[in-house]
Amino acid sequence: MTTWPVVLAGCAVCYLAKLTGWLVPHAVLERPRVVRVAALVTVALLSALFAVQTVVDAGALVLDARVPAVAVAAVLLWRRAPFVVVVVAAAVVAAGLRLAGLG
């Protein structure tokens, strides 16, 4: 199968999914249970993406400089540090570990 039919089919599926979302009545989307489930699904998907991008490489578990950097970022966020400080601190930790040959 060539690439273009697959790309066009994917586009059609995405368009239909978006169209279906627009066709759902607003009253259904405002129900407390739907709002709660939508919030939890968003957090679950973001967490899964984060975990896969942080500790998986080519299908194998990898514990490199990213893990301590994320731990530092988590502690700083927990301590309510400014976001710029969190990003810079995590980058410094990852860079330092890689420079030291530990990541």
Rank of each mutant, 00 (worst) to 15 (best):
G96T: 03
D64S: 09
A74D: 00
W22P: 02
V93A: 09
A17D: 01
L45S: 02
L61H: 05
A44N: 06
R31M: 15
A65V: 11
G96I: 04
G101I: 09
L40W: 10
L40V: 09
L77W: 04
V35G: 04
A44R: 08
C11G: 15
A17Q: 03
H26N: 07
P82C: 05
P5E: 01
V34C: 05
A38W: 10
F50P: 00
V52T: 06
T42Y: 07
V93M: 06
A90P: 04
F50M: 11
V37W: 15
L19R: 13
P32M: 11
R31I: 11
Q53F: 10
L23I: 06
V7P: 09
W78S: 12
T42P: 01
P68R: 01
A48N: 12
S47Y: 10
R66P: 11
A91S: 10
A51I: 13
G101K: 04
L77A: 08
V13N: 01
W22A: 13
L29F: 05
V7M: 07
R36M: 12
L77D: 00
P68Y: 02
V34L: 12
V84T: 12
V24M: 04
E30L: 15
S47N: 11
E30T: 14
S47K: 08
R98M: 08
A9K: 07
V7A: 09
